[in-house]
Design a protein around this nucleic acid. Structure first.
Lengths: 213, 213, 213, 213
DNA sequence: ACTGGCGGGACGTCCCGTTGAT
DNA sequence: ATCAACGGGACGTCCCGCCAGT
């Protein structure tokens, strides 16, 4: 009944495994991230790893959720430009994990259901993002959700490009192109608002399984 | 040692295998497309399949090259809007294959090299794409290759979104946003070609594939 | 469509695997009969073995059914004394397999169902054994099915004893004791009928899962 | 290093583990009785269990010895009929354990030796069973040890039948058949002791076990 | 040309028993 | 004395590709 190791210890182990697993899944893909490689990456043994996660699949799901939450959190709190910056400049592991996740959603029925359940459970906690998007002052001659989707396309396309190993694009140029596309008629292009814009700019993604997409 | 069946027969078998394999790889992913499933999809047996392709990886490479060439060919010959249309309206198998390919490039050293070799060999045969891009009349205050990359981001992002099962976006709206982003200053929207001129759309689906896909 | 190897070949392989597996299961028990040991015993590889049987469990079931049919067939065709003789003098592998089977029926829900399904399917093929028992001329002051059960107890007890490695009992003495127990009043003990008795003496077991019991 | 808990506490723990383990081994078999299940059954954890027994095998041996001693004690003290009654009416766990034990003797060299050592050590403590058997007044035209073996066959056969889930037989009928088989010539059935004198039956079930069994 | 029996390797899972912490 | 984290071994399963057979 008395905890044999401190709760902090368990927490740290949990985190340690998640982090190492993220590296592994990113580098080798789900199937390529064999248990042996997970052992090497974590520095722990099967017994330890599967003491914290029932399954390799559960481990992967946990990693995917983590990265997904990270991604949406950046977008919501720091804005779209910050998201592009993060995609470009931070380590690319979480992008790769996201792509893995979408692939497994596509190909593995079981995983699809697991993710759907999770999404359902945390759907309610999300604020109305469309409202927040409206406040950003985008052009109004195009449906707002289309703008949200468009921004998502660019972000995902960027992530895909980076994980493929293609060279880094000129982020300012990209941002400029995006900006002109979504800015209101008159205010367009008055001087790189993308960079100086308030940190709360964000947009909307489809409510479905957007986080993993 | 005279060939027992006509060259056309071999050609047809080759094609038949490629097509079935594409379905398989798209639906199940590379690892999930086991040889047994490939047998079922092709209606042939191991022996036959591995008679035409040295191993599973070579088969996948052939499929990936095929889909990749198809994608670039649409873009170059029918324009970006046509590419978007194709991504949206044709069966999504080749998108999934493309994603699989990038994933394997990322994770499998061996496959990465195979692709690189192939690219090198066929690089010379491609016309200068930037030249053709220039002819489209985009804005000139942003480097042309950035525009190309930007368009690629959107296309890839769209592909990724579709294969994830997210709902179809309003293509016209997306096209409008992209158009304003890349059009020259003054000439923007002078004829809404994006909307009104979906040049040579290829939206018809290849027969006999979609139903089974 | 044309069989690649002769049907006889497949038949022989099937038999070969069953026989070796029987040895293995008898000697090591179900859990102890690891796939490696089955490989050694059959002289074949995993690939070959599991080409003929989907599962280790299916293989065991096939073996158990085989031995069970053998046991009941001896009893029905050659009589109870012949059964005792067979239990004592033939190789004890099939006894051990039978015991394994009952144990797995007891402990493994899944196996229990498999056996039950099999029994159900072959129930109809069995002739009315109680009738045949009646013809044997046992004492009539005790219910006939009790006599059948009693004989079954002795046979099973003998099997259990033998597989435990205990020394062989004096079969004639045992037979004499059984004989006096079940013979009609007057004819009792007139001179070792057990040995000279007609070869079609048999008795009844509970219809349930008797074959595996 | 004074013992922190009383000797009685240790004794109770010991007993508690043995009892729970007996249930486990009976229900799941040796291999199926995983340590996790033993933990659940005992309400204790690995550490506690392996503090009292060096390993799983030793625990099983202890359980098996316990049940075995119980069985022989009933036979010797209360007679054969009482043994049959006990087999039929008491909870079947110890029968299953006995069967498990004989199986492991047969298949596991190591366990066989352990049991042999134990037998050797306690052989001397047992009174001469043949002597006691002789005192029961059986027929003398058949070797006495054959009678003993015969009775053992019936008892074991009955146990096997019961653990297999087959329906309960009519015990009186069985006893009558046995009785006639082993009784002296003239004195047979002079009082039907088998039926009328179920000496000192021990049919009450041990408390607290049956409900959970 | 085509089949499929087969070898053998590697995977995820589970399980036992040790060990260090309480 | 008791616990649970953990190491590491072995298991059944599945899968790819070779090649003997037709």
């Amino acid at each position: 009944v008395v905890p044999k190791v401190s709760k902090e210890h368990k927490q740290r182990r949990h985190e340690q495994i998640l982090e190492a697993a993220q590296r592994c899944f990113a580098r080798y893909g789900y199937e390529g991230a064999t248990v042996v490689r997970l052992e090497e990456a974590t520095g722990l043994s099967r017994g330890a790893i599967f003491n914290y996660f029932p399954d390799k699949e559960a481990l992967f799901l946990a990693v995917a959720i983590r990265t997904s939450e990270r991604m949406t959190s950046i977008w919501l709190e720091d804005g779209f430009r910050a998201l592009l910056e993060a995609i470009v400049h931070e380590d690319a592991d979480w992008l790769a994990v996201q792509l893995e996740a979408t692939r497994r959603i596509r190909t593995e029925e079981r995983f699809h259901r697991l993710v759907a359940e999770h999404e359902e459970r945390f759907e309610a906690t999300r604020p109305d993002r469309l409202e927040r998007l409206r406040a950003q002052g985008y052009r109004d001659d195009v449906p707002l959700d289309a703008i949200g989707i468009f921004l998502g396309l660019v972000a995902n396309g960027l992530a895909l490009r980076l994980t493929s190993g293609d060279p880094l694009p000129d982020l300012d140029a990209i941002a400029e192109l995006v900006e002109r596309g979504v800015a209101p008629r008159r205010t367009r292009n008055q001087g790189g608002e993308w960079k100086s814009a308030p940190r709360t700019r964000r947009t909307q993604r489809s409510p479905g399984r957007s986080s993993a997409a």
